[in-house]
Amino acid sequence: MTITEAQRKVAVAHADPMGCGIASVFALAGLDIVYDLAPLEVSHAKQNCHAVFLELAVARVVTQSQVATAEGRVRSVKSIAELSEAALAIETIVKSVDARQSLYFALEGVLSETVILAFSTSGIVPEALSEHLRRQGRFLVAHFWDAPHIIPLVEVVPAPRIEHDTVAATMEWLTAANCKPVLLSKAVFGFIGNRLQFCGAARSSTHASRRYCRRAHRRRSHEAITRTTLPMVGPLEGADIGGLETFLAIGSQLLPHLASSDQGLDVLRRLVSEKHGGRRDGRASTHEMWNATSA
């Protein structure tokens, strides 16, 4: 995809650690990024983006010159109205369905009718959020993995009334940003990647991907997870990085579709009740989970 001048601006709402990672991916690919932020979060968001760029520079994935250029493409704003020039908007808030629908209503009020609105989630199917949108044909899931600057997989899940060119443009956009987009033909709880994470069994993951992906995307999904994610980040590490409360919420929705019991979440429930949040809160919990599951 050749990015035109009109398509260069991408909006990210909201600039949490996941949003910063997504913004960094697009900025390194040459797109201009704008954030919707609360005033007190501006400096924190810039620090998060700088940390991502620095991590890639230390690993020699990018040069210091590329870092300086990418950081210049990232701009923070304090009002949703300032996102109006975006051609692609990605929402990353970890909130309830009602809160997300309120955000979408506000975004529809400022974005043009041709803008693609994507939300990054692995726990909510798109039809649960698109019902009250005025432009349902421009709405879909783009599920980025944490951390998006390391794991290139993005699961793309169309809403029921999606327009064909919305899907095609999103896939091209993500490819241009050096991501590995995988198109699901049908929404299913947990999509493909989290079913791999929670099942942990090749037979279960193959069954899921055969039902919900075309062959080419099935292969890409399996490779992206097994080659870039699971060798480095298993379910416990993934929960620690992404946040224990978030992982528990996803697991509580997903496991009833995969197993006869959700007993495997007991360790997470205990840690969450003890206020363990994971690495995002500065309190890594992988060792506690390993000790509890090995006891």
Rank of each mutant, 00 (worst) to 15 (best):
G264E: 07
E245C: 12
F189K: 13
K180A: 14
A176R: 01
T175E: 14
V188Y: 06
V156S: 01
R203P: 00
H257A: 07
E237N: 10
R203F: 15
G193E: 01
G193T: 11
R214I: 00
T246M: 08
F198W: 08
A177Y: 02
V154H: 05
R218W: 00
L230H: 07
R210G: 01
S221A: 15
V182R: 01
I250G: 00
Q197C: 15
A176C: 10
T175I: 15
G238M: 15
E163V: 13
E237C: 15
G200C: 12
E172M: 13
A216T: 12
A168I: 12
F247I: 05
G242A: 15
M171S: 06
R210H: 03
P160V: 13
G193I: 09
D165Y: 12
R211H: 06
L254E: 01
A239V: 07
Q253C: 08
V156G: 07
N194A: 13
A187S: 08
L230E: 06
H207L: 10
L184N: 03
R215H: 04
R227Y: 08
A224C: 13
N178L: 02
A202S: 09
E163N: 10
K180D: 12
A208W: 05
D240E: 04
V154N: 08
C199G: 11
R211T: 08
A208C: 14
I151D: 00
A187R: 07
L254R: 01
I151F: 09
L184C: 11
E172G: 15
A159F: 00
G243C: 09
H222C: 09
I250S: 02
S209D: 00
T206A: 06
T166R: 09
I241N: 03
S221C: 15
L265F: 14
G243Y: 01
A239E: 03
D262V: 08
V188N: 02
S261Q: 10
Q263H: 13
T175N: 14
R215S: 02
K186D: 06
L255C: 08
A159N: 04
P235C: 08
S205V: 11
E172R: 15
D262K: 06
T166L: 06
S185P: 03
C199P: 02
L230K: 12
A169E: 05
R195I: 10
A177Q: 00
S260A: 14
R211L: 05
G193V: 06
E223L: 11
G242L: 10
S260Y: 13
H164W: 08
R218D: 00
I192R: 00
S209V: 00
L196T: 07
R227E: 14
L254M: 10
M232Q: 11
L230F: 15
P256N: 07
L258P: 11
A169Y: 01
P152C: 03
C179Y: 03
S261N: 15
L255N: 07
D262Y: 11
L184D: 00
S261Y: 14
S209H: 02
F247R: 03
T228W: 08
G238E: 02
A224H: 04
G193C: 13
P231M: 12
D262E: 11
